[in-house]
Nucleic acid binder design. Structure first.
Lengths: 199, 199, 199, 199
DNA sequence: CATGAATGAGACTTCATTCAT
DNA sequence: AATGAATGAAGTCTCATTCAT
């Protein structure tokens, strides 16, 4: 069915993006081959290469938020949920280093024309809002549990989350300053810093 | 003279990178035209487009660290220097949003082949070390002045700086959560959070 | 079908080589046009211009030996076969003056890189051996018929054949010393000289 | 002086032709460098690259005939002179394999435009006539000495000389049929065959 | 629906030639 | 007279897209 083939192509495209770390070098032929589909068939489902790439990114963004939601819905207390949230972001970023930048900065290095860009940016903004919404829920849990004395203002907890994410990124990237730290340690310190900042 | 023309081409290339937010779409012809130079002349100074782009990035990296050094050497107390550092980073990032990602994550979306990449990565690492070194000096000033009770561990102050930078990026990016804040306010809060985290 | 188009391109390339007497000035666009094929299509069948030219030459070499075999298999006595052989070589050389040199000297003036050269040289050597083999059979017929008293040594008959070929080349080339001779006369004298030398 | 620089450039060009076995890949810059002369200076002496190459070839042709004359003027009887002539041609061909073809067939694989071609062809024809003239003198000596019973017709001795030359070429080329023969032997057999054919 | 052969616009790069010094 | 930096025309090759099957 049509949709199935689209998803096949999304996955193929995303796979190649990860592999190459560079969207500009990806060829339609490569994507088609990776999806085990004829080159011409791509154009039955997408108007252009641009469109396919743009939609692939949107598909990725939606998947991110979905797995994020799942990860924090597993239950547990504030710390457990906070950790789960960070772990999810961490693994998303590991799985998709190229997109990490995209997600974090909403900059589009990709060779996608302006028309597509706005489409993506809209979806990105949606995703960011969804993340922020979930973050707020996590904060509320922290307040209810008394880990956070009183609900901090939005600026503060947003930046605190940003901070935690930055820890992960730096760690994942393997900067020399972090090499003799285990992931557990890093997560623990990250948590402590998070609580400290917001108290 | 040769060097002059190389710099002319660096600037032209960097200008286009900023303009286009995408290195993969930049054509040699464009760079040459922007530098007001014949297309063939480019190849008198660079072996290939790749080389020109790679060297342009390295040129940019060196310029970044140079202006950063200058900005924090203007004197003043801890808070002044901290603010100057942030302002420099802020303006560098504004001037060069595309590179922000590169600098922060050391990922290279650019269509530059593996050989060039390693060249760039080496230079990037040098630059990062230079920044970290300067950051430490700023921390030391804070300690001497007594703003920071005792010298925090490297992990903490690195992340704290990262945090401050993230505030700027978020602000510059115009996320809706920050729209009713002035840059001064943001910087002030950023400073307060910085000190709080490290105390 | 793939093979057909390759042959189309071989013929087009060979045609242009003959026309221009110089392989270095042939453009891919010319070959494609001559084959009534899109420029890009050439690269569906050949990795590079080099490859196309090299393969074209090999195709030519194989065709030469094939028509040579056919020409001497038409039957008849020693003189008839000798004449047929010479006629074949003569017409091959007329059809392809540029290649004549190649075939005779195994030198490759063509702008073909070293890797391709060795490929061609191998094929050329094969072809040369095939010719020598056929020549020997012709000699054996001459001996059996008693035209040649006893089988001459290889050096002698090889050179004798070379000599005959040279007569043709000189004649074809229209050197002034040969202008008042008909092709028949030349062939007759050539034959007589051939027999005389080997007796 | 002007002329000196021209000769410098001729020699440089010829050297590169030999080295590369392919005139089409020779660059003006290469020739200039080989002659230790500025690139622009070439155009003080030659209207174009074409002209330089064409004149270089003509220079070579003249040099060939000059050394040939010298070689056969050293005196001695018919056999000695014949051998000297062959030796000269042999060494010329060794020194200049690329030109061998040119000289033998008067075909121009070189990337030289039609206008230059006719210039070269005229000079080639002159050279060929000069060679033929000298050959005739050698024949006359053979007749006078009685080695050749009576003066053979032009066709015969021309072809006989061509034959001898072909022996050298084949030998020099290292065809497998000739590998267990010394140059002396080959020359001796060549001489014998020459005399036999013309008797 | 699915395909992949065919295409040609356009990119990078080379190099003969010019010209200011 | 000598130079070499600068040039741009022209060539090779890539690849998104089309279209007949």
């Amino acid at each position: 069915m049509g949709t199935d083939k689209k998803i096949l192509l999304y996955e193929a495209a995303l796979g190649l993006i990860e592999e190459k770390r560079d969207m500009s070098n990806i060829k339609v032929a490569d994507i088609a081959k990776a999806a085990d589909i004829g080159k011409g068939t791509v154009y039955e489902y997408f108007k252009s290469k641009e469109q396919l790439l743009a939609e692939s990114i949107i598909y990725f963004l939606k998947k991110c938020i979905k797995t994020f939601e799942e990860s924090i819905n597993s239950g547990g207390g504030f710390k457990v949920i906070y950790m789960a949230a960070l772990k999810n972001i961490s693994s998303t970023m590991t799985a998709s280093r190229t997109f990490s930048q995209y997600i974090t900065f909403n900059e589009c290095n990709f060779s996608i024309k302006k028309t597509m860009q706005s489409l993506i940016e809209e979806h990105f903004e949606n995703m960011r809002r969804a993340y922020v919404e979930k973050f707020e829920k996590i904060i509320d849990i922290g307040v209810k549990e008394g880990v956070l004395k009183k609900k901090p203002d939005k600026f503060s907890w947003l930046i605190a989350f940003g901070n935690s994410i930055m820890c992960i990124v730096a760690f994942k990237h393997g900067f020399e300053e972090f090499v003799d730290m285990t992931e557990e340690e890093m997560m623990e310190r990250s948590y402590n810093m998070f609580v400290k900042v917001l108290t």
